[in-house]
């Protein structure tokens, strides 16, 4: 069972397309819109660049949650990159379920570069979701052993 502790701050990795989510994060910043510092952004040239292994490695590297943010469907700069990303996220969700980490720790979002507010909302939504789920089962074991706080 996941153990929810009051001082648990989830580590979240966001793979962001430079044409939408990354620009939206930039806009959120220049608009002084606050979003949780739990989210660490990885810039991608397109959400279609995301690979199953990037997502798995993020979890292996002790991320509690991961999301991919790409352009709105139908507006991908490379036409179908975001649709490919969606399929890969779906596939990795099934892998995380079979391993026992849980597919709900991974999500795909779509937004435009003009949506700084939406970027912050997504960051809050994902942070709250993972906070409710508790630390990744990989990190829980370590916590019990006292290797990390």
């Amino acid at each position: 069972m996941n153990q929810i502790t009051e001082d648990f701050e989830p580590q979240i990795v966001a793979f962001c397309c430079r044409y939408c989510a990354y620009a939206a994060a930039d806009l959120a910043g220049s608009s002084r819109i606050q979003y949780p510092p739990n989210v660490k952004i990885v810039l991608l040239p397109c959400s279609g660049k995301v690979d199953e292994l990037y997502l798995l490695k993020a979890f292996e590297a002790e991320a509690d949650g991961v999301y991919v943010a790409g352009c709105l469907e139908g507006t991908c700069h490379f036409l179908t990159g975001n649709l490919r990303a969606k399929k890969r996220v779906q596939y990795v969700k099934s892998l995380l379920d079979e391993v026992g980490i849980g597919g709900e720790r991974l999500e795909m979002y779509n937004l435009s570069s003009a949506e700084g507010q939406r970027f912050a909302e997504i960051a809050r939504e994902m942070t709250e979701r993972i906070r409710a789920l508790g630390p990744s089962p990989l990190n829980q074991r370590k916590s019990k052993e006292g290797a990390i706080k």
């Binding site: 199953e52 292994l53 798995l56 490695k57 979890f59 292996e60 892998l95 079979e98 391993v99 026992g100 980490i101 089962p137 990989l138 074991r141």
Partner: peptide
């Protein structure tokens, strides 16, 4: 992919 899955499962 399988190696990553196994590493995580075995660690858990």
């Amino acid at each position: 992919v399988l190696a990553s899955e196994l590493r995580m499962q075995r660690k858990m």
